[in-house]
Design a protein around this nucleic acid. Structure first.
Length: 675
DNA sequence: CTTAGGG
DNA sequence: CCCTAAG
């Protein structure tokens, strides 16, 4: 009776959509096993190089002496000069190369700028009035890297930033495109030298990153890479239109845009995703899973409006299953972008002035490509030796998470450890020509086109983490996705509040981000504040080194630990609490009324697709609490009061679906018995 | 990955 | 919200 009554409440005449659910298996991918066994390719080589570098750093104080033929590299056939690994040691050093740079200025410089800008964006999205960013290019040009410093005003940065966000690199498009072209195999007359490198990087939203966690002296490093098609980067940025930060109020009704976004986003990072998850317990990941992609076409059908004439929603699922592979990638949004780079540690003090060195450290690049100076044809030697100058290698991205109260010294140590760990973990060197990876190691340089007579324009090298030790990490979207400009690079280096009992979430003390562009000449650790979705595109005028991150953004980071040493640190910070708003409840109720209580994934997609911080589990939980809430007396309820009307609907729907469920079960039983 | 439930 | 067992 009661049930009946309830049903009447909101289900008058409502026909239960009897749609068989797609079998779960259908969505399941059997290919779980991963190739985690990548062999350590040039591990040794790199280790050697790394070692060298480290040594050099320690020993060489000011001399920008370039390393000569590091063991293992180009010893035989080609003679290479590795000026710096991981960091640009010093562009100025070799005239010849500089020459090249200058010549290329037209194109290179813009390119560099791009990269540069990107970096800026990454590292100092917020007020930068006073930030000083060295412009490597300049330095290079003038040969006085250390002295020439250009100051970029916050505005400028902001603009750059915006430009980046918009996919374009205003004013830089030309070169950018050129790059892309190269990547695609097209060679542009103009691009040469470092071109290939930068583009590669840029086009690789996927970031390879290392996450270093310092809390508790734990060191967590995570490397990830995930090659993405160029262009994804920019696209990856969410451009959710007009969605509230929460996505709360806009959760419904605007699927279209959202869909596109999600789709796009989802395309981004991925490889790492699963892998990582697998490797590490889910507890390490705190990002809300992104549901699978949806079809645009579904949007119409999916309209959340509760109506009797509901369209064939049924198709939705199956369709979706085929077309879209759902992906819980890290949200691209940030994902893609949140990468910090730490190229410094290794190069030590000398990098000063090179913080934003020519090396295009685009974040996002899964591999840090360093710029290879493609020696011009003019730079040939007499014999058939191929001379290469590798200006720098960028180490895979690192993520560092360190408590605010940590000391600078510990920060340094952490970074160092992280870098060391990476190097020790093994790196592989990849060779790219025209942006394409040369896979056949057996080929001779000549065969590959790397010969003195050739312009080595398209030649590039990249360092890649040894996949054995890392997991590609695609950052998940920040839970709080930024509506329109999430595209901007962001990273989170948040202090783990969990480690600081005294100041945890509730303390309203948001972890602070360190934006450090000038902190030390030693480290170019560019920490980027996480833009809060709340204050989306505003640059905080006076925030310089430290940026407050709204506590609401203090979402946990994805941290992976490679070192067993940190156990406690593994405890991930709990997600910040985000009470459901009435509108969200409304959306939830509506969705459940329509879909039932056993299809949270669909509910999520239907009404909360844009709310990245609401997982289907969250929705399920919320429903659970709603039901509970509806049953208790109003006096016992807490939090934002939910309209009684909604609660009534909750009860009705709950009753209805429970009934359906039992009914279904009965029929099943009957069936099996009957047969 | 999703569900369903307990904590 | 988290964590997990199941599927």
């Amino acid at each position: 009776m009661v049930l009946q009554k309830r049903l009447e409440y909101g289900f008058n005449g409502y026909q239960m959509p009897s749609m068989p659910r797609a079998s779960r298996s259908a969505r399941r991918s059997s290919m779980r096993k991963n190739v985690e066994n990548n062999q350590l390719c040039a591990f040794e080589l790199l280790a050697t190089v790394a070692g060298k570098l480290l040594q050099e750093r320690e020993s060489s104080s000011s001399s920008n002496v370039s390393m000569r033929t590091p063991p293992g590299i180009g010893k035989d056939v080609s003679k290479q000069e590795i000026k710096g690994v991981v960091k640009n040691v010093n562009p100025v050093k070799v005239e010849q190369f500089d020459q090249v740079h200058c010549d290329d200025n037209a194109s290179t410089s813009s390119l560099s700028l791009q990269a540069h800008h990107k970096d800026l964006a990454l590292s100092a999205p917020h007020g930068l009035d006073e930030s000083i960013i060295t412009n490597p290019y300049r330095s290079e040009k003038f040969g006085c890297h250390d002295d020439t410093v250009s100051t970029v005003s916050g505005n400028t940065i902001g603009k750059l930033y915006d430009g980046i966000d918009n996919e374009g690199y205003p004013g830089l498009n030309k070169s950018y495109e050129g790059d892309v072209g190269i990547v695609e195999g097209k060679m542009e007359p103009e691009s040469r030298g470092i071109s290939s490198t930068p583009k590669r990087t840029m086009s690789d939203p996927c970031i390879s990153g290392n996450f270093v966690n310092m809390g508790n002296s734990s060191l967590k490093v995570l490397l990830c890479r995930d090659p993405l098609p160029h262009g994804s980067f920019s696209q990856s940025c969410d451009r959710m239109k007009g969605t509230s930060q929460d996505g709360d109020d806009n959760s419904f009704g605007c699927n279209q845009t959202r869909t596109m976004n999600s789709k796009t986003l989802r395309t981004l990072p991925r490889i790492g995703d699963r892998r990582i998850r697998k490797l590490f317990a889910s507890k390490y990941w705190r990002v809300a899973p992104n549901l699978k992609e949806r079809e645009l076409s579904n949007d119409g059908d999916m309209k959340p409006f509760f109506s009797h004439k509901r369209p064939f929603y049924t198709r939705e699922r199956s369709h979706r299953n085929f077309t879209l592979k759902r992906r819980r990638t890290f949200e691209p949004s940030l994902a893609a972008t949140s990468y910090r780079r730490i190229d410094s540690e290794l190069s030590g003090p000398r990098i000063k002035g090179n913080a934003f060195g020519p090396k295009l450290t685009k974040h996002g690049g899964n591999v840090a490509l360093s710029s290879v100076s493609g020696p011009d044809s003019s730079f040939n030697s007499k014999d058939s030796q191929v001379k290469l100058s590798i200006k720098s290698f960028k180490i895979p991205e690192l993520f560092i998470e360190i408590p605010e109260n940590a000391t600078v010294g510990s920060l340094k140590r952490t970074v160092k450890e992280a870098v060391t760990a990476i190097l020790e973990g093994g790196l592989c060197v990849g060779v790219l020509i025209q942006g394409k990876k040369v896979k056949d190691d057996a080929k001779t340089l000549l065969q590959t086109g790397i010969c003195k007579d050739n312009k080595l324009d398209g030649l590039g090298f990249e360092l890649e983490p040894n996949s054995t030790n890392l997991s590609p990490l695609c950052s998940e979207t920040l839970p709080f996705l930024l509506p329109c400009d999430s595209s901007r690079a962001q990273s989170r280096y948040s202090a783990m509040s969990a480690l600081n009992p005294g100041t945890s979430d509730s303390s309203l003390n948001p972890p602070e981000m360190i934006t450090n562009t000038e902190t030390s000449s030693e480290t170019n650790l560019a920490l980027v504040p996480i833009p809060s979705d709340m204050s989306v595109d505003k640059l905080v005028p006076n925030s310089r080194a430290l940026v407050d991150v709204p506590s609401s953004n203090a979402e946990p980071l994805a941290v992976v630990s490679l070192h067993s040493k940190s156990k406690r640190a593994e405890l991930v910070q709990r997600r910040t609490r985000r009470p459901f708003s009435v509108s969200e409840v409304e959306a939830l109720v509506q969705a459940v009324e329509k879909l039932g209580t056993g299809r949270w994934r669909d509910v999520k997609i239907r009404s909360f697709d844009a709310a990245k911080h609401r997982t289907y589990v969250d929705l399920k939980d919320k429903w659970k609490t709603l039901v509970h809430t509806a049953r208790i007396s109003p006096q016992q309820r807490r939090g934002e009061p939910v309209p009684q009307e909604l609660l009534d609907r909750v009860l009705s729907a709950h009753a209805y679906w429970s009934h359906q469920q039992t009914k279904q079960q009965l029929s099943l039983q009957t069936d099996s018995l009957g047969i």
